[in-house]
Write a protein that binds this DNA or RNA. Structure first.
Ligand SMILES: [Mn+2]
Ligand SMILES: [Mn+2]
Ligand SMILES: [Mn+2]
Ligand SMILES: [Mn+2]
Lengths: 228, 228
DNA sequence: CAAATTTGTTAGACCGATCTAACTTATTAC
DNA sequence: GTAATAAGTTAGATCGGTCTAACAAATTTG
């Protein structure tokens, strides 16, 4: 009853999730191991194996037995366009619908699979063509091109440095709620006061927080721009 | 990788589309024939038959061999809640995102399957808790209750009557584009000037249109409130 | 009412996405 | 460099959703 037209060359939601996972898990060489993929998607190895073979048939992945997986350029573009929909959605939910940055990932995980170019185009327009999402990740353009930023993890900063929080390497609800509880948001300026040699925790100061200790687990997930 | 949690008692998108179709196709007794269902969903009879058996197992449908299909109260509520999401989405797309009423059905057909109560709750709030969608159909409340209106088809009106267009029985893009071309919108007041006995077409006047002929096919799809 | 037609059912197949069990290849450790 | 371990593959099954072919029941028509 008036459902969407399914183009055979179109990826299913499942395939789209595999492409996204491959994209996000790719190392600097663009390679991913099957077991990382299976782990990332919470499926068994044989499941990932058979899916990868079918993604190869569709031309999204280069697959050779026992070799690491590599997205083809088409696969990369496809993945980037899904990530674009995901991040535009997150931005829309935060900026236009009043959601907190910790609430939007799960919703976007579903909305990203909607096939309606005008819908996302309209979001993009309403948002003024944003280039980053609410967690500081870049939004690919409509050709699937991604602007790369060179941020460094806070964990690599030295005492005395002043930095600005610009992005996160993890956007789980739990982590975001932790940041909320410490009043840490994108844009916050922090000064690194000291590093504890034993557990690599950092003592920082910012705004009304003259002294706050951040574990290594936290500081390695905070990406910053060094200000001086 | 952060995908939605799937509750076993939850209907799949396919099942949701069957429930909606059953709801919309139900006659005054709440009955639907299998062939109507299959036709409405554009699937074969055996496909509809097997799906209906599985909907029965889930407790959404009462099914007996060779008897008409009847949604259970639970099935009705489930269907109404999906229709609620569909219509809220259409309203949101029109009122908050600037889409035309002829563009929104296909998008809503996908968005209705998203499992994110807060998302639709937020739409509802932003829209001020609307009770009708952009095509004049009632939006079920969050308990799945539907407010019934007693509109009559324009085709049943008599020359001399003045009426107001309040809803449509068909919301296909083509029909809505036809209405756009004649500048007919919800709320438009029309006066019935005459009826052609041969083909039952109606001559009406409204706004800057002193004389417009509407075929029976059109006039039976226009629901109106009689003003005098 | 019997024949013709429509409607509904069953059987058996296929495909996508998933699993477990069993096996093979590759990598790591000693 | 072999043995142990990890990673990847194959085989075979299940389940949801779909189909066609063949058949059966119900309804309509003459
Ligand atoms: Mn996200
Ligand atoms: Mn997803
Ligand atoms: Mn609609
Ligand atoms: Mn739908």
């Amino acid at each position: 009853m008036g459902d969407q037209i399914i183009n055979p060359s179109m990826a299913s939601s499942t395939e789209e999730n595999y492409l996204k996972a491959l994209f996000n898990l790719s190392n600097s060489l663009g390679e991913v191991n099957l077991s990382e993929l299976a782990h990332g998607l919470q499926v068994s190895l044989p499941t990932a194996n058979s899916m990868v073979k079918s993604l190869q048939k569709s031309g999204w992945v280069n697959y050779e037995k026992y070799k690491p997986l590599i997205l083809t350029p088409e696969g990369q573009k496809e993945a980037a366009l899904i990530i674009r929909k995901h991040r535009l959605t997150e931005m829309f939910l935060v900026k236009k619908m009043g959601f907190g940055w910790e609430e939007v990932h799960e919703i976007a995980e579903q909305v990203e699979h909607i096939h309606a170019p005008k819908f996302f185009q309209r979001m993009d327009e309403m948002l003024g063509f944003p280039t980053i999402d609410p967690h500081g990740s870049p939004i690919p353009d409509n050709q699937g091109r991604i602007q790369e930023f060179s941020y460094v993890p806070l964990s690599s900063c030295k005492p005395g440095q002043t930095v600005q929080l610009t992005a996160l390497t993890n956007s789980s609800t739990e982590f975001l709620e932790f940041l909320n509880s410490r009043k840490l948001a994108l844009g916050t300026q922090l000064k690194v006061l000291s590093r504890e040699a034993y557990d690599l925790s950092l003592v920082v100061s910012y705004q009304n927080h003259p002294q706050e200790t951040l574990s290594e687990k936290v500081s390695e997930r905070l990406l910053v721009r060094v200000l001086d």
